[in-house]
Computed example of a mutant assay.
Amino acid sequence: MSNGTVQHKIADQVSTVTFYHPQSNSLPGALLRELAATIEAAGNDPGSRVIILQSEGEKAFCAGASFDELVAINDMETGKVFFSGFAAVINAMRKAPKFVIARVQGKAVGGGVGLASAADYAIAHESASVKLSELAVGIGPFVVGPAVERKIGTAAFGSLSINATEWQSAKWAADRGLYAEVHTSIEGVNEAVTKLANKLAASNPEAMLELKRVLWQGTDHWDQLLLDRAMISGRLVLSDFTRAAIAKFKGK
């Protein structure tokens, strides 16, 4: 269990993809690759019509990329591979021929905000505050940026990126379109997710596919764009400034 898990199950034409990592559901590279492959497989499975993306537990939804792997980067190629992990997951969600519902039960940091943004519909608990912390360690939310900016707009993305040490509430996120619904209990979140998933499972698959294409129109270049963004982060993480910032962060 120390390396984390990704599970996929199908019931009543609903695919549920669940990821877990003991460090606040953070996602190391291997787990990101498995998650991307699992979402792609769920999208292509004829036995389901909708995908639920969730993490285990009732605390953090996702703490972002693995900090242990971040501090171990020592060359450009390793950095590119590391930062392209979330690119693979976001693109898998974008290209899945089915709607993706995100169940966000707790705080989302960095890449976790990217996952919620890349979902077609996010249902959150009131504890699901958000933070893009990348600038605080000398990098920037470059890979997840296109998904977040598309969802909440340039101004809100800019403020979230620049004020990198402050949490914004679930209400803040909902007011800006990141969350479609916010509930006061986990039971309410679960009921809302199940209700919507069942509605979509009974809907016309062809109509849903066409609507998804409309909603994601103009993002066909993201396969290359997100890799280009990963290279920016891979370069910055090798700078003396970023290494010093990471060392300071680790020392806290």
Score class of each variant (00 low, 15 high):
Ala88Cys: 14
Asp75Thr: 15
Arg176Ile: 04
Ser84Trp: 01
Ala60Tyr: 14
Gln54Lys: 15
Ala174Ser: 14
Gly112Trp: 00
Glu126His: 14
His125Val: 10
Val104Gln: 03
Val182Asn: 00
Ser129Tyr: 10
Ala88His: 12
Ser159Leu: 14
Ala124Phe: 07
Ile90Glu: 08
Phe157Met: 00
Gly106Leu: 11
Glu134Pro: 01
Ala118Phe: 09
Ile73Lys: 00
Phe83Lys: 06
Glu181Thr: 08
Lys151Gly: 03
Val109Ile: 15
Phe83Ser: 06
Ala170Glu: 09
Ala128Trp: 09
Phe61His: 11
Val148Lys: 01
Ser159Val: 11
Val137Asn: 09
Ala63Glu: 15
Thr78Trp: 10
Ala116Glu: 01
Gly79Gln: 05
Gly177Gln: 05
Glu126Ala: 08
Lys151Asp: 00
Phe67Asn: 07
Thr165Leu: 11
Ile101Gly: 03
Pro97Trp: 11
Phe83Ala: 02
Gly57Lys: 12
Ser169Gln: 07
Leu70Ile: 06
Ala122Asn: 07
Lys95Pro: 06
Glu166Arg: 14
His125Gln: 07
Gly85Ala: 10
Gly85Leu: 03
Pro97Tyr: 12
Lys131Gly: 02
Gly85Ile: 02
Ala156Tyr: 01
Phe82Asn: 01
Arg94Tyr: 10
Ala92Leu: 08
Phe157Tyr: 09
Phe86Gly: 06
Ser55Cys: 12
Ser117Val: 05
Asn74Tyr: 12
Asn163Ala: 14
Met76Pro: 11
Ser127Arg: 11
Thr154Arg: 04
Ala174Asp: 06
Trp172Lys: 06
His183Arg: 12
Phe82Thr: 01
Ala155Pro: 08
Ile101Gln: 07
Val137Asp: 01
Tyr121Gly: 11
Ala164Pro: 04
Ala65Arg: 09
Val104Glu: 03
Ala119Asp: 08
Arg176Gly: 00
Ala65His: 14
Glu56Ala: 11
Glu181Gly: 00
Glu56Tyr: 05
Gly64Phe: 03
Ser161Met: 04
Gly57Phe: 15
Gly177Met: 04
His125Pro: 10
Gly110Ile: 00
Ala164Phe: 12
Gly158Asp: 15
Ile90Asn: 04
Val113Thr: 12
Lys131Thr: 14
Phe86Thr: 12
Phe86Lys: 09
Ala72Glu: 09
Val143Ala: 03
Lys131Asp: 02
Ser159Ile: 13
Gly111Cys: 09
His125Trp: 10
Lys95Ser: 09
Leu135Gln: 15
Ser161Ile: 04
Asp120Ser: 13
Glu166Gln: 14
Val89Gly: 02
Ala88Val: 10
Gln54Tyr: 08
Gln54Ala: 15
Ala102Gln: 08
Gly85Gln: 05
Leu160Gln: 02
Val143Gln: 03
Gly111Thr: 10
Glu149Leu: 01
Glu134Arg: 07
Glu58Trp: 04
Asp68His: 12
Val113Pro: 00
Gly140Arg: 13
Ala119Leu: 13
Ala118Ser: 12
Ala147Trp: 01
Asp175Arg: 06
Phe82Lys: 02
Gly138Arg: 04
Val71Leu: 13
Glu134Leu: 13
Glu69Lys: 08
Ala87Phe: 06
Ala108Met: 13
Glu126Asp: 13
Gln168Trp: 09
Ile90Lys: 03
